[in-house]
Structures are given as C-alpha cells and as structure tokens.
C-alpha cells in the first residue's frame, strides 16, 4: 500500500513540476498516435465508405476481412513491420526501423481496420433510399458521399475515438518497431513497461496517469465535436 501511495506522490510531483523527460515522452506519444490516427482516417473512412456504397462480388468476404482486421494483434503488426523495415527487409533501405516513423506506420496499420470497420457499419446503417433521396435533390456523387458522411458523423467520430484509443494504448508494436530509445522513440506505453520492469513504480504510475488523462482529454474534445450543434 505504501508503495502505491509513494508512487502517487512521485507521480503528482512529476506532473506539477513539468518534468522535461515526461513532457517529451507525452508529446511524442501524442504526435505518433495522432499522426497514425490521421493516416488511418484517410484510408479507413474512404475504404469503409467505398465498400459500403459499392456492390461487387465477394463484398461479404471483404467485410469479414475488415472486421477481422479490427482485432489485429499489435505484436503481429509489429512483427511484420519489423520484417519489412529490417536492414535486409524489402523496405530496409529506408532506414526507418527504431524511429518514430516506424511507430507511426505500425500504429496506422493497427488503427486503419478499426476506422474502416466502424465507417462501413455506420454507412450501412443509413437507410438505403437516403442515397437516392440525396441524388434526387440534385447532388453530384461526391456531394452525396459527403452528405452521407455527415449523416453518419456520430458513429464516424466514434470510429476516430476507437482508432486513437487503440493506438495510444498499444505497446507491443511500438516497442518492436520503435525500440523504446530514450529521448527519441520512447512513448508513454513503452516507458511505463520499462519503468515497471525496473521497479520504478512511482514513475510508472505517473506515466499511466498521464496516459489516462491524455486519452480522456482527446476523447472529451471529440465528444464535444460529436455532440455539438445538435438542434433542439
């Protein structure tokens, strides 16, 4: 019990004194996971919308692949990204392994199926005749897709939250492709694992609290956006 109380005290101290190392780790976590989420939104929303609106043979198979991808284990993603970026791997010449860029790639691969799957479900949940109604109002196809996205904005923003939540909290892929290098590729999750391993529970608790606060802050902002301008 004493260990926890001491840990909480140290955590509070680290937080209020704006410890430069902790701040750096926090900023890198936000930058890596934020960038990965943005990339996953571009691919996920466009792929999910395209699959939802198009009719093609094997659509159900594609949907089941996307749904399977929503549960992609981060360590498996980390493994394959490591192999591709390994010195002798197909993309080894790029020299990205153990860099924040590699972490962004891995996290984007984890988040994209989550965003795609939620987008797909959101678009399929809209009434089928809504597309015809929008076209009958004189919309072009891009206008129709945009209006459908606006109609599905609540579940789409839930997809953004799920995607960000998935990557900010994952640790396996980040350690494997980022290497947890101090001051360079160390993020909140990898640092927490390392400090716990060393028995520095106070620092680990501080990092854990920051991770929770960060997730809470981002999701609060997204919830505000999601719920704003709701008419009476």
């Amino acid at each position: 019990m004493e260990l926890i109380i001491e840990g909480l005290k140290k955590a509070f101290l680290l937080l209020v004194t704006f410890d430069p190392e902790v701040l750096g780790i926090t900023w890198l976590s936000l930058a890596v996971s934020g960038t990965a989420t943005m990339i996953s939104l571009v691919f996920g929303i466009s792929t999910g919308t395209a699959v939802a609106l198009a009719n093609f043979p094997g659509k159900k198979f594609v949907i089941s692949i996307i749904n399977t991808g929503m549960g992609l284990p981060p360590v498996v993603v980390g493994l394959f990204v490591s192999i591709f970026l390994w010195r002798n791997g197909p993309l080894g010449f790029m020299g990205l392994l153990y860099t924040p860029a590699a972490m962004i790639i891995a996290q984007a691969i984890i988040a994209t199926p989550i965003v795609t799957g939620i987008t797909l479900a959101a678009m399929q949940h809209l009434p089928p005749s809504l597309r015809l109604q929008i076209l009958a109002l004189g919309a072009t196809r891009p206008q129709m897709v945009w209006m459908l996205m606006k109609e599905a904005r609540l579940p789409l923003l839930a997809g953004v939250m799920a995607g960000f939540g998935g990557v900010i909290s994952e640790v396996g892929a980040s350690i494997m492709v980022g290497g947890n290098i101090k001051g360079y590729s160390r993020v909140l999750t990898t640092a927490t694992v390392m400090e716990t391993g060393r028995g520095n529970f106070d620092v680990a608790i501080a990092l854990g609290i920051i991770l929770l606060l960060l997730a809470f802050a981002i999701n609060s902002i997204l919830t505000q956006i999601q719920q704003r301008q709701r008419p009476r």
């Binding site: 009434p127 005749s129 809504l130 015809l132 109604q133 009958a136 109002l137 004189g138 919309a139 206008q143 209006m147 606006k150 109609e151 904005r153 008419p231």
Partner: peptide, 27 residues
C-alpha cells in the same frame, strides 16, 4: 436538378427542419 422526388419515408437529415428544406438549394 430540374426534378425531385419524395419517398414513402421522409428521409430527413439529422439536422434542423430549416436545413433539411434548404438542402437541395445548398447543393
């Protein structure tokens, strides 16, 4: 853009009544 259609279901957008009625004009 010279025609329009009303369906069995109202198929209104998730916004105000005014914005719904303005939708085709905005398009």
């Amino acid at each position: 853009r010279n025609i329009t259609m009303v369906f069995q279901e109202p198929l209104l957008f998730d916004t105000t009544v005014f914005r719904n009625v303005a939708a085709g004009l905005k398009i």
